[in-house]
Amino acid sequence: MNKKRHRKRVIPGFGLSMGVTLAMLSLIVLIPIASIFVSASGLSFNEFIKVVTARDVMSGYQVSLSCALTAALINCVFGVILAWILVRYEFPGKGVLDGLIELPFALPTAVAGIALTSLYSDKGWIGHAFAQIGISIAYTKIGITIAMVFIGIPFVVRAIQPVLEKLDKQYEEASHMLGASGKRTFFRVIFPEIFPAMLTGFGLALARGIGEYGSVVFIAGNIPYETQIAPLLIMSKLEQFKYQDATAVALVLLVISFVLLLLINAVQVHMSKITSTSH
């Protein structure tokens, strides 16, 4: 065997484990992903632009983005509240509440989708009450947003919780000693500390919302130009065997998600510069 290469590393098995990792990764993920670029290259630039700027596609992006953004923001508010009560307070049923947070990960999205649709349709348990005051939830953007809140909440709670657990109590005590109220202490001292974690959760929830299909597609109702989400457009283009059009729509969706995550990452790098003590 080639002993020279092994001598550099104390622990044996690098070649084998790296080989298996790369082989599996390439076979299952990288090679298929590459296909999207192969397929997209079959379209000329003008055709590409024409596909992705078509009215239904633009409206699909707009619906997916605006609903995912709203849902991620709502999840930030409730994510902070949930993480806070789970870390800072003792109350009966806390363990159950904590355990329930992951339900959206465990529950198949299609099941969540039909359950939410039935609940929020004008005849459903919850939708009925809103229908009486003239608000329809299912088959509107409100419904889409609710489905995205459902699938996004664990990301935010689980991002904030560990940070809050580790947060040194001295910061709060210092603020109290200086006479600050609980509200001021939270917004000036604690919130900046958990903000980067909240942003991580926000980014994950947002990305998930933009790409989500199963839980959203039922409640969306797929009314053209109104409640058609971007992933559904990819799906319907595929069903019409317009593979290259589907690729174009998917590529833009990927770029949007990527840019958003990059932006969030940039903010976090900036924030961590403030707290890093490498000085």
Binding site: E173, A174, M177, G179, P192, T275
Partner: peptide, 21 residues
Amino acid sequence: IPAGKRGIGFVFQNYALFRYM
């Protein structure tokens, strides 16, 4: 009397300076 109203200054062991300020 709550801590913040006792007119006491407190220097914490690790200073607890607000990191984002």
